[in-house]
C-alpha cells in the first residue's frame, strides 16, 4: 500500500508530500503520524507541501486536523512551502487553517520549530498565544 514516508530528525518529524493526496492516503498519513509522534516522542512536526498542486476541502481539513492532533500530543506543527494557488484555493474554500503555523520554506520552518521549542518547549502554551 502507498504510504507517505515520515523521517525523524532529532526531536522533529519530517513529512514531505510528493504525490497527489487522495483521501485514503491522507487517512493513512494521519494514523502513521500520530503513531510516530507517540513512539518517537517527537516535539515538532514539519509538513512540506511544496509539491502539492491541487487541494480540496477534505485535504485542507485534514492538514488542519493533523496539526490539531499533533498539538494534543505536545508536538508543534509547521506547514511549509504552500503554493500561492493552493493558498488562494484554501482561503476561497473558507479554510484559513487558524490553528496551523506556516512558513515559506523548510529552512524557515525548522527555525520556527527550534525557536518555539527553545522558548518553552510546550506546544500548548505556544499555540494558545
Amino acid at each position: 500500500m502507498e504510504r507517505i514516508p515520515i523521517l525523524k530528525m532529532n526531536e522533529f518529524l519530517l513529512v514531505s508530500i510528493q504525490v497527489d493526496m487522495h483521501d485514503r492516503l491522507a487517512m493513512t498519513l494521519q494514523d502513521d503520524l500520530t503513531d510516530r509522534i507517540v513512539r518517537d516522542r517527537a516535539r515538532g512536526v514539519l509538513i512540506d507541501i511544496s509539491s502539492l498542486e491541487i487541494v480540496d476541502s477534505f485535504i485542507g481539513r485534514m492538514i488542519g486536523n493533523i496539526a490539531a492532533m499533533s498539538r494534543v500530543l505536545d508536538a508543534e506543527t509547521v506547514v511549509v512551502g504552500m503554493r500561492p494557488a493552493v493558498a488562494i484555493t484554501l482561503v476561497e474554500l473558507g479554510l484559513a487553517l487558524p490553528g496551523v503555523r506556516t512558513s515559506l520554506n523548510v529552512d524557515k520552518g525548522m527555525e520556527l520549530l527550534r525557536s518555539s521549542l527553545a522558548r518553552g518547549g510546550n506546544g500548548h502554551r505556544d499555540a494558545g498565544r
Binding site: 504552500m82 493558498a87 484554501l90 476561497e92 484559513a96 512558513s103 520554506n105
Partner: peptide
Amino acid sequence: LKTVAAARLMGA
C-alpha cells in the same frame, strides 16, 4: 482578511 489569510498560509 482573505488576503491576510492567504499570506499567512504562505508563512508571511
